[in-house]
């Protein structure tokens, strides 16, 4: 089962919509609650990264019997230094975004902690691609 969602950069009022939709689908499939919660964290953080940093992006979710495979691809400023971005506490979020409680520099670390496989690639000035896998 493959679902694709559009994510609009800067649209905080619709943010989290894709993650919520996937969570509801997984619950219908009777996936273990702990697993659903891990996946929810991963998807939400990935979605919020697009909202907070990029212009727009897509989240493609592939649910297979063995696990969930997600690709989040955006057009945006990209990430200059991926190692730095993966460090807890590092963030390039604007003050406005931080005031909302985002930009704590915990998004990517939260993703890494809650998934089984993660590949992050980026071209500065073009965009970012994040591939995530959580096994069932």
């Amino acid at each position: 089962m493959r679902i694709e969602y559009h994510i609009e950069g800067g649209d905080f009022s619709a943010a989290g919509g894709a993650s919520s939709a996937v969570r509801k689908t997984l619950k219908q499939f009777n996936i273990a609650p702990l697993l659903v919660r891990r996946i929810a964290v991963v998807l939400y953080e990935a979605e919020m990264n697009v909202v907070a940093h990029a212009y727009h992006g897509t989240m493609t979710v592939d649910i297979r019997p063995t696990g969930i495979y997600v690709v989040i691809e955006d057009s945006g400023p990209g990430i200059e230094d991926i190692d730095k971005a993966m460090q807890e506490g590092f963030s390039t979020a604007t003050d406005e975004v931080r005031q909302m409680g985002f930009g704590a520099g915990m998004g990517l670390p939260n993703i890494r902690k809650n998934c089984d496989e993660m590949t992050l690639t980026s071209t500065p000035g073009v965009g970012t691609r994040l591939e995530i896998q959580v096994n069932f």
Partner: peptide
């Protein structure tokens, strides 16, 4: 002390 709409998604996703 956050009261914007995103708290709803966080609370819902984290149950």
């Amino acid at each position: 002390s956050q009261v914007h709409k995103n708290i709803v998604a966080v609370a819902s996703l984290k149950e």
